[in-house]
Write a protein that binds this DNA or RNA. Structure first.
Lengths: 137, 137
DNA sequence: CTTGACCTTACCCGCATGGCAAGGTTGATC
DNA sequence: GATCAACCTTGCCATGCGGGTAAGGTCAAG
């Protein structure tokens, strides 16, 4: 199977697959005499694993660790759990931050009459930070 | 005032200030005979406006629009409100997505016994997508 | 005059990917 | 055998938002 078909079947792009190979996430694919990459069922399996991991928001570096654990028969599930938990913590952190930003903005929006008068509390806040101080990281 | 002091007072870095100037977000700063950038109170005011907008999570492109609205005396506060609302929508969208990822992962983690046995539901899911399908975007 | 802190431009690095260009391969059709 | 479209190859540039670093110019204090 050529890279295009492998891409379609895995949900990745051909470009991504080549990139993953170039950074060592994937081992080099077999080649035809003319240099075309060839993928088999095992490779497809790995590509699908990567795709699902990325969909869950793991970085390529984390995907690399997951792949290693996946391919290590002696792996302890505790390791995988720890990695997943760490990722959950990062997600929660990000969600909290975004939520605070949204709340601050929401507050500003509610104080803005939003008509044709030029006087705008949102701009006033951005100007001086007064009236409804934003959450600063 | 030189760029370093302007940076310290605004909370931005000198690098950022030069970058903002280079992409046209800021008008070119005045220069001394020897080429040093010089900033006055008005400039500091603008820098602080940018800093606060960034802190609220606006992209540099959005900050550009806000700056334009800010400097336009005939602006309608409705425009600003619309921009802020759009940003809130984007934040909410992102928050929802991250929350779904977290929930999926959390679910997987709860089904993982997390000991030394190599059998791991998280990896199983990444492998086949079965058992607890992840939220796909 | 020297020293050290500051400033200048200009380049490479990261993430993860898209896009484009120039050229080689393949398989089908004429 | 030629042609054509669809595929493949490598390679370079771009994104957003800066961080890091180098090589050099400038300024004020000692």
């Amino acid at each position: 199977m050529n890279i295009g078909q492998a891409a379609r079947q895995s949900g990745l792009s051909a470009k991504m697959i080549r990139y993953y190979e170039s950074i060592g996430l994937l081992k080099a694919a077999h080649r035809t005499d003319s240099g075309y990459r060839v993928y088999g069922d095992d490779d497809l399996h790995t590509l699908a694993f990567i795709k699902r991991s990325r969909d869950l928001g793991f970085s390529l570096e984390e995907v690399g660790k997951l792949l290693t654990l996946w391919q290590d028969r002696q792996r302890a599930s505790a390791d995988v759990k720890a990695l997943a938990r760490q990722h959950i913590d990062e997600l929660n952190q990000k969600i909290r931050e975004l939520g605070q930003l949204r709340d601050t903005l929401q507050d500003l929006v509610e104080h803005c009459h939003g008509d044709h008068r030029p006087d705008c509390p949102i701009l006033k806040n951005l100007e001086s930070g007064c009236c409804a101080p934003p959450a600063r990281p």
